[in-house]
Amino acid sequence: MPKYGMVIDLNKCTSCQACVTACKVENNVQIVSEDDAQNGRAMFWMKMLTMEFDGDYPNIKPKTLPRNCMQCDEPSCIKVCPVRATYKRDDGIVAQIYPQCIGCRYCMANCPYTVKVFNWDREEQPKEIEKLYNPDVSVRPKGVVEKCTFCVHRLQIASEKAKAEHRELAPGDYVPACVEVCPVGAISFGDLDDRKSEVSKASRDYRAFGLLEELGTVPKVRYLNAIE
């Protein structure tokens, strides 16, 4: 079994937010009304986090970091789910089962990265967006929790394709939307257990670190520190 992971190089990242947009479109993430967004109900699976500000006004240099679900190897979210609507797959991806979720939001409260988003209500989406819906991803009803799944639907498609072609899944066959779209190639993705893969090497780089690693969640999304 592979163990999927991701490494984001902050030296390369330009905070262009292409990944944020690509993720939102790829996964049919609900677009909420302006009022709701103001009230903190905007929904993003991938989000640009401002970690700190360097320098003084007006010469501020914000340090940003794209943050999706860390796909923890020891996820605190699945421990508490009362109905197993969120679980860890054998390949390490932490997945959600939308029809199973009862919307108790315990997993949200226990994710140290505050990753999960909740469908507070279901709003009418703009017509153009509805036309753009990705048919491979279900549209979530109101009242359930959702989060980044490493675009697990792409894995299903890729492995079925590989099966039809009678071959093993090759390293580049399956990548999430954010990896594909990143214009500077800052995100590498693949099997962490395969020591020769690009992502595995990067995860062992001296610049590599995991967010809030000290909590013991063992995040499978790692970052390469930005060095001037």
Binding site: K79, P82, V83, C101, I102, C104, Y106, V145
Partner: peptide, 26 residues
């Protein structure tokens, strides 16, 4: 109150069918 707080009270029976005793909610 926890039932009022649920996003999907219609699925409350999932707790009985597929509840997990390791969750403090149970």
């Amino acid at each position: 109150h926890p039932v009022i707080d649920l996003g999907r009270p219609d699925r409350i029976l999932h707790l009985f069918e597929r509840g997990r005793l390791q969750s403090p909610l149970l």
